[in-house]
Design a binder for these strands. Structure first.
Lengths: 341, 341
DNA sequence: GCTACATTATGAACCGTTTCACGAGGAACC
DNA sequence: GGTTCCTCGTGAAACGGTTCATAATGTAGC
């Protein structure tokens, strides 16, 4: 039995040698088995097995060109919103036998760039990105070079790039409007940085609601930027507010994880929800309804978002870009209204 | 201005031509800029910009050999347990400037194979896998061919493959033991299929606790296999039990998502927790403490699990395999004990 | 026996990088 | 002025597949 050189993966040439055929034949066995005589095929297959040969994807792709993989870059892989979207994407891709690779940018433009570059250099068919910054020039460049790009959870400002988003202005408006309806006259908004479009939009929505109610945003709104968009960030933010003596009566959180941190803190501080402080979240994650004080939240069609995004990427490499905008809905629960179910 | 051929990405040769240098020089500008005279370098950089050249990752890798990426294959990307682990992995990889690609197998051995193959063919330095089956021969084969493999959340039965796991037998024992301590004499265990090692192990732990308490498992334990390991699966399972008239007094759920579904259902059915039914979950996800009835759960050091796994993969390609086993702890809350805080 | 035509197998060209031995042109030194 | 060293830049040889024109072989038909 011929041994391959130690520590070197067997190549197609090794297989060819072992099976006493040419490399072309091995390649045919791999890609168009019907073209090779059963006897030869078996010999080749035996050699493959014997040498435990694995195709070199880089070489294959270098010559063949394409690959049926698409990449997704989300802001935070630990955020249920994004993973729900990812499930939607996967579901759709599966139908066309595409595979999905997920990477997390952590809101860091550099990391986003790094992964984007990695995906592009490896020739994925397309990337779905939740951009960490407002500026999408780098994505336009990727698009121009021939890789499909779909913006996730963010309307596209450019006609050449498709996008699938949920109306965040409307979401902010729904949340703030609800709090105002409940009689609050001042809202604390625990938001992320405005460099994240969703955050800026939700802020705009809040303003819209305040103005519609005839309030002056300067006094009726306090926006606090949380350090990280998760429970720890929410906890730190609300704790900061409480310690400064500025106890809010209504808190709108940019996502449910932040809201979770807020609820947790309010409970340990024995502050009643919604009597003393009303809380509204965003995303309506699975556990929102089951919390100690069920969380009022803005629901987004996450799964559908992912499915649709994958749809756009698969269907139209050449077709004109499409911009899909879903509408969010408000789910009122006990954390913001004592009259809620 | 020279235009590259339509629909063909610019290659290093195009750049060389445009900058009137050799391909070797372009490569040097890309990889060891200090070796080329500033003037030439600038000319090359201008050409790169001009042609919006992007390295072909396949070609690069084909020649250069390695790549600083590692792949992770988890059972369910929407499960917080796995994404928390992924965060841990990322944190560790970042320190060494490695990148992480995550894929989700959905408990499907075929999908696991597909992604494993994809990762291996593309020459990742290593893969971290939560295997969907008991049989890990395919992983051994990958390891033998030179790609690093670390088993995630699953003790390795093979000396050549490192693993990082949490003692699931102990976890099952803790959960069941606690329920028995609370006075229950019959436990319903909503478990996943035993083909998933974690499920089989937790079951073994439950048995151990029952036997230690002098009970006969045949009558003191009812194991129900849930269709999917999430809230919907939990809801369906408990609903099935209730409709069959077999109302349990103590339910142990294989993870917190399943427990969430159970709690949700019990609440809509107006069944009191823990008075009528005690519930224990597994994973101690972030929201467990904040639920309407705070959920008793088995806590696993998820983040640490990920960090340690990445550690093993990065440190020891050649070093002997290591098997790390963490111990879980039980966090008692209101869902299982009226005396809990 | 000769041509015509499938059917299989072959081997070289090619994909786009990196790497490396080598050459050209100075500078430095004796 | 000749030798030695350096600094830059060159060009061709890999890397490991796929593809395609071509060769070898066999079969049919006349």
């Amino acid at each position: 039995m011929t041994q391959p050189a130690a520590h070197r993966r067997a190549s197609i040439a090794d297989v060819a040698r072992a099976a006493r055929v040419s490399v072309g034949t091995v390649s045919n066995v791999l890609n168009r088995p019907e073209r090779v005589l059963p006897g030869t095929r078996e010999r080749v297959e035996a050699a493959i097995e014997d040498l435990s040969f694995v195709r070199n994807g880089s070489a294959r792709q270098l010559r063949a060109g394409t690959i049926t993989t698409i990449g997704a870059i989300v802001l935070d892989i630990a955020n249920p919103f994004f993973t729900d979207v990812a499930r939607g994407i996967e579901e759709r891709l599966d139908r066309d036998d595409f595979t999905l690779m997920v990477a997390s940018s952590d809101d860091d433009p550099d990391r986003e760039q790094r992964y984007l570059r990695l995906f592009e250099e490896h020739g994925v068919q397309g990337v779905m990105v939740v951009p960490a910054t407002n500026d999408i020039d780098h994505l336009l460049a990727v698009r121009r070079r021939g890789t499909g790009v779909v913006l996730l959870d963010r309307p596209s400002s450019d006609p050449s790039i498709s996008s699938v988003a949920v109306d965040d202005v409307r979401g902010g408006e729904l949340a703030a409007g609800h709090l105002l309806d409940e009689g609050h006259t001042r809202i604390v908004f625990l938001n992320g940085p405005h460099t994240i479009r969703q955050c800026a939009d939700r802020h705009a929505g809040v303003l819209k609601a305040l103005v519609a109610a005839g309030l002056d945003p300067a006094s009726a709104l306090l926006e606090v930027t949380v350090t990280s968009l998760n429970a720890e960030g929410g906890e730190a933010a609300i704790r900061g507010l409480l310690e400064s003596g500025d106890r809010p009566t209504a808190v709108f959180c940019v996502n449910d994880l932040v809201a979770l941190g807020v609820l947790r803190t309010l409970r340990t501080e024995n502050i009643a929800v919604p009597t003393d402080v009303a809380v509204v979240g965003y995303d309506d994650v699975a556990f929102a309804a089951e919390l100690a004080t069920p969380l009022t939240s803005v629901r987004q069609p996450t799964h559908e978002l992912g499915v649709r995004a994958a749809d756009l990427l698969l269907s139209g490499t050449d077709a004109a870009a499409q911009h899909v905008m879903f509408q969010p809905t408000l789910v009122v629960r006990g954390s913001s209204s004592s009259s809620a179910t």
